[in-house]
Simulated assay, not measured.
Amino acid sequence: MQHYPEAALYVVATPIGNLSDITLRALHVLQLVHAIACEDTRHTQTMLRQYGIDKPLLAVHEHNEEEAALLVIERLRRGERVAYVSDAGTPAVSDPGARLVAAVRAAGLAILPLPGASSVTTAMSVAGISGGAGFVFAGFLPSKALERDQAVLLLLADPRATVILEAPHRIEALARAMVPLGRRLVTVGRELTKQFEEIVTVAAEDLSAWLAAGSQRTRGEFALVLHPGEEAQTGNDGNRVLQLLLAELPLKTAVKLAAEITSAPRNELYEAALQLKKN
């Protein structure tokens, strides 16, 4: 029998789309707690109504998390149980909640996680990637073009699978940035668990074309799994990365980044860069 102590913060995973994906334990705790802290009170209120739950709501989002954490801690010290939910999925990963959890821990109070829906593991489960190399969770890549391009190029040197999240208004830019990954496979999960869910596996260089093939394909939230690549070959990969970087950056900066990405000798890359510039 699970024990639900007082004066504790309950970090509760909620559905990422389909309301039926709530767990029985989550429903029990949301009924049990004195208050529910949440990313968006309007969104959470709508969700709770579907389950017949009515509780006081506390707004704890990315813009007020540090100050709001103090109010949550005050409630906990009074012996209350408080739940925290984000708008969808598991809090404190890509959604707010991490600073709240850290503040509650620093205050010496109890924190209990309630597992549930996650776009990360949902996407991985349909990618069909076997083996024990594990995967990397990259979350949302930088929004600025140059920083995003550099982040994608870093993936060339990592043979592990990588999970990337993206919003609809940036998915086409991400697809363009992934072209240098060539034939490396990407499993795209669009609107996972929702009515218009779509899952497809394409080569990274073909992702832009897939998005362009249907107007609905750029809508909704995305979870992408970049499949494992072959171990980096420093010579070929170094020159390939160098060519891509030289198109956007000064020579010395391109050489420095190419060396960091591929671990190729910097002096060799510098000579190659001079030759590329000359040609």
Rank of each mutant, 00 (worst) to 15 (best):
Y4Q: 04
L30Q: 05
L156A: 14
L109G: 11
V101E: 05
A92W: 07
R170I: 02
A175Y: 06
E67R: 06
K278I: 06
V82R: 09
A223C: 14
L224E: 10
M178P: 04
F196Y: 14
L155S: 13
G214V: 00
V152N: 04
E231Q: 12
R77N: 14
L9V: 11
I171F: 00
N279H: 10
D149V: 04
G79W: 06
S94C: 08
M124D: 12
V241L: 07
Y10T: 14
V11N: 05
H61L: 02
P168S: 06
T187E: 11
L165S: 00
L276A: 14
H169P: 03
V85K: 11
A69F: 03
F140T: 03
Q233A: 15
S143I: 02
T187Q: 09
R219V: 06
G89D: 11
E74M: 03
D149C: 02
L112H: 01
A175N: 06
I171N: 06
D87F: 04
N18L: 06
E221C: 07
R170E: 01
Y4V: 10
Q150R: 14
L141D: 10
A213D: 14
L269A: 07
P56M: 11
E166H: 08
L251I: 08
V120Q: 01
A177N: 01
L24A: 02
L156R: 15
P265N: 12
G182K: 04
A213H: 06
I164V: 14
V93W: 00
A117W: 07
Q195F: 10
P159S: 14
P15C: 11
R148A: 00
L100Y: 05
T162Q: 12
T23M: 13
A213P: 08
N239F: 06
A157N: 14
E230G: 15
E166G: 08
Q31F: 03
A213V: 02
Q31Y: 02
G189R: 10
S118Y: 05
A123Y: 09
A106E: 15
V104L: 08
A13Q: 11
A110W: 02
E172P: 00
D95C: 02
L58V: 12
R184W: 10
A7L: 09
G128L: 11
R99C: 01
E231N: 09
A37V: 11
L141A: 09
L165R: 00
A204Y: 09
V186S: 07
Q50W: 00
L251K: 13
Y51N: 12
A8C: 15
R170L: 03
K278C: 11
Q31S: 08
G52Q: 04
G116H: 04
R240Q: 05
L224P: 08
R176Q: 13
S263Y: 14
L155A: 12
A7H: 05
G79K: 09
G238Y: 00
G132N: 13
L100Q: 11
P56S: 08
P5Q: 05
A258I: 09
I199L: 08
G132M: 12
T44S: 12
F222D: 03
K277R: 14
S119K: 08
I16H: 02
S130T: 15
A259K: 15
T44R: 08
E197Q: 15
A157D: 14
A258M: 04
A203S: 10
L71D: 13
G229W: 07
L249E: 07
G134H: 01
H63T: 12
